Simulated scan of single mutants.
Amino acid sequence: MRLFDRFRTKYKWNPRAEQAIYDTFIDLIKDRFRDNMKTLRELSKQMAKEAHRELPDEGYDIGILREFPPKGIPLEKWHRMCAHWNTEKWQKKSIAGRANRKNDLCRHTGGSIRFDQHRINLDKEEGKTVGYKKVLLQTHATKRCKKMLQDGVISENDFASLEFVTDRAKRSYVAYSQQLKDLYGDVDCDDLDLWKSLHPKCKGRKMFGIGSSDPDFLVTGKKSSTICGSNDDARHSQELQKVQAELEREREARQNIEARFELFQQELEKERADQDEWRKNMEELVKNIGKK
């Protein structure tokens, strides 16, 4: 891949990490590519609206967008892109994606980090296994709410002041907190069965607040709720520590690559801007010569 070849001229790394870095680079390219394509469609949609064309509030009329290529996109390439977006397969994916983004199950503030990785990070920061309520706040509270919690303005039990990205998230958090207290008093503990009982409709599907993570580990901090002998417990604990350490290394490595990729992308954008400026100057120079 030529773009990766160019990237590797900017940075150096251990040859043994080559494949991992390449895989991360490709993942980032895929993520940015989707975002960039959406930006192009939105720019085209805005151009069409300014031309007083009728468009749906949600989604795209690709047949109309085809007539409005964004600045810098050759018409022939734009038509090929629109032909791809106009297929039944792509349209179905687009509709499904919009539906998922409206679904409470998919709305959270955890970013691209898996929920179980958030638990690992919080456990590491606190130096102990944190309660599931803290994980819920980290993944479903608003940015403003997290700031108030961090500054000590409010506490985890100030239910009226806590802010979440969805009403469902707040209802679940409050119900779980109150029922935990009713069952166990002020004892600091968690109960996966209780959380499951609050979301009976999630049976057989991804559970709310859990996603694709291991429910036992995410809620209780333990790899499995199955009762094991002491030897099994020790072995599982060691295995979990190894997995946590590996996930942490992968997270740090990915953050490092993302930072480098961001700089690399900024350099590419600057080069394109310089090339556009040079092209404009040359066109202006040719015009002036023609006038003489």
Rank of each mutant, 00 (worst) to 15 (best):
E88M: 13
K89M: 15
Q91D: 09
K92E: 11
K92Y: 12
K93W: 11
K93S: 12
S94M: 15
S94A: 13
I95T: 13
I95A: 15
A96R: 15
A99T: 13
R101S: 12
N103K: 08
L105Q: 09
H108N: 09
T109Y: 06
G110Y: 02
G110C: 04
D116Q: 12
D116F: 09
H118I: 05
N121C: 11
N121G: 09
L122N: 03
G127Q: 10
G127R: 10
K128F: 07
V130S: 00
V130P: 00
G131F: 02
G131L: 07
Y132A: 00
K133P: 02
K134P: 00
L136N: 00
L137K: 02
Q138P: 02
Q138T: 09
H140Q: 11
A141L: 01
K143A: 12
K146A: 06
M148Y: 07
Q150F: 11
Q150I: 10
Q150N: 11
D151L: 07
G152Y: 01
V153S: 10
I154R: 01
S155W: 06
E156F: 03
E156M: 05
D158W: 05
D158L: 04
A160G: 14
S161I: 09
E163A: 07
V165E: 03
T166D: 03
K170N: 02
Y173R: 00
A175M: 06
S177R: 03
L180C: 04
D182I: 01
L183W: 06
Y184P: 08
G185K: 03
V187I: 12
V187Q: 08
C189K: 10
D190N: 07
D191L: 00
D193A: 13
L194K: 03
L194M: 08
W195K: 00
S197C: 07
S197F: 06
H199T: 11
C202M: 14
G204T: 03
K206L: 14
F208C: 05
F208K: 03
F208S: 05
G209I: 02
S213I: 08
D214E: 12
D214P: 00
D214A: 10
P215Q: 07
P215D: 04
F217I: 05
L218V: 04
V219S: 00
T220P: 02
G221C: 07
K222M: 10
K222D: 09
S225M: 14
S225G: 11
I227L: 14
G229F: 05
S230W: 15
N231Y: 15
N231D: 15
N231S: 12
N231Q: 14
D232H: 12
